[in-house]
């Protein structure tokens, strides 16, 4: 699963985001560098939702933060609408920021508890000096309404008065204030009740159509991903294992890791004895990743070749790419 290679990248004509060979390192304890993202390439075309799936520690959140330039990247390029933002600094970087926004898993702590909802949603407009007061107020009302909140009821209240689902709606409204082109959602529904998850996924879908957004959706849950995305990237320990259209991926997982992820999804039907491939153990430490394919230590099909040689992403038909020496049939 080492999955280097860029076979899955598409021609860049209508790409909103094109990331190539991105490497992100954190300083390790003894002065060495730990690679959290090891040469990832992804692209998102206009109007598309790309999901990034993987377990805790696979580097999916680091990837998102790197793209957002919330943390510094070590090498590689991040092209947002044709500009390599990995190389930008200072004011030049600041001016591209409105084009990309992010929402987080813990929506309650990502909103300033001292500000009222109106002020929270209006703040980006003030920072960027957009519109006069009246126009800003109208925009806030419009945004809150579009995420299913009543501006009259919620506008003068503070985030602590709301539930997790309602806070997530507020952060979506706030993220859309500056009309970004790209919205990165980092596990936006994983701390919500299933009934509320569905509401938020529907809102994201509506917002995407209404504001012409492209989404990057990060999750560990393939069933959530299937509901919202067009294309899915499966990550393991900083590398890509598999890239595929959403429906194709869950029906025909080619990588053994993806197969394990698919079969881990609980099926709400007690009569279905699922042929579950429960993945044993947890991912190895990124400080000392396995040689060759990084998944080989937990893989049921691993051979000597997997230890010696890193598999490359190769095309497997139906828009499906896999980085595995012994893919599932």
């Amino acid at each position: 699963m080492a999955g280097t290679g860029k076979a899955h990248l598409r021609s860049s004509d209508n790409a909103v985001l094109r990331v190539e060979d991105l490497v992100i390192e954190y300083p390790g304890r003894d002065g060495s560098a730990v690679q959290a993202v090891s040469g990832i390439s992804i692209d998102i075309v206009e109007g598309e939702t790309l999901a990034v799936v993987g377990e805790s520690g696979c580097g999916k959140s680091t990837l998102a933060k790197g793209i957002m330039r919330l943390i510094n990247t070590s090498s590689g390029s991040v092209n947002l609408l044709g500009t390599n933002i990995a190389a930008l600094k200072g004011e030049a970087l600041r001016t591209v920021r409105p084009k990309m926004q992010m929402i987080f898993q813990d929506s309650i702590s990502s909103l300033d508890p001292h500000l009222k909802v109106n002020a929270l949603v209006e703040q980006p407009l003030k920072v960027w000096n957009r519109g006069n007061e009246e126009e800003r107020k109208a925009k806030v009302r419009d945004l809150l309404t579009s995420v299913g909140l009543d501006p009259e009821v919620v506008g003068d209240r503070k985030p602590t008065e709301f539930s997790g689902g309602q806070c997530q709606r507020i952060s979506i409204a706030r993220a859309l204030t500056l009309e970004p082109k790209l919205l990165i959602c980092d596990e936006p529904v994983s701390s919500l009740d299933v009934s509320i998850q569905a509401q938020i996924l529907n809102i994201l879908q509506d917002m995407k159509e209404r504001y012409g957004l492209s989404l990057m959706f990060i999750s560990h849950d393939l069933s959530v991903v299937r509901a919202i995305s067009n294309r899915v990237v499966v990550m393991y320990l900083g590398k890509i294992c598999e890239v595929s259209p959403a429906n194709e991926l869950s029906e025909r997982p080619l990588h053994h890791y993806t197969h394990a992820l698919v079969s881990a999804v609980p099926i709400p039907d007690p009569t279905k004895v699922s042929g579950r491939a429960v993945l044993e153990g947890e991912p190895p430490s990124p400080t000392n990743p396995p040689s060759g394919c990084r998944f080989r230590t937990r893989c049921p099909a691993a051979t000597d070749k997997c230890a010696a040689e890193e598999p490359q992403l190769t095309y497997a038909g139906n828009g499906h790419y896999v980085a595995c020496h012994h893919p599932r049939a």
Binding site: Q197, A198, A227
Partner: peptide, 12 residues
């Protein structure tokens, strides 16, 4: 409940 056997992009 999000399910793997639901059509992708279908409204929840």
């Amino acid at each position: 409940i999000p399910r793997l056997d639901r059509a992708p992009g279908e409204r929840m």
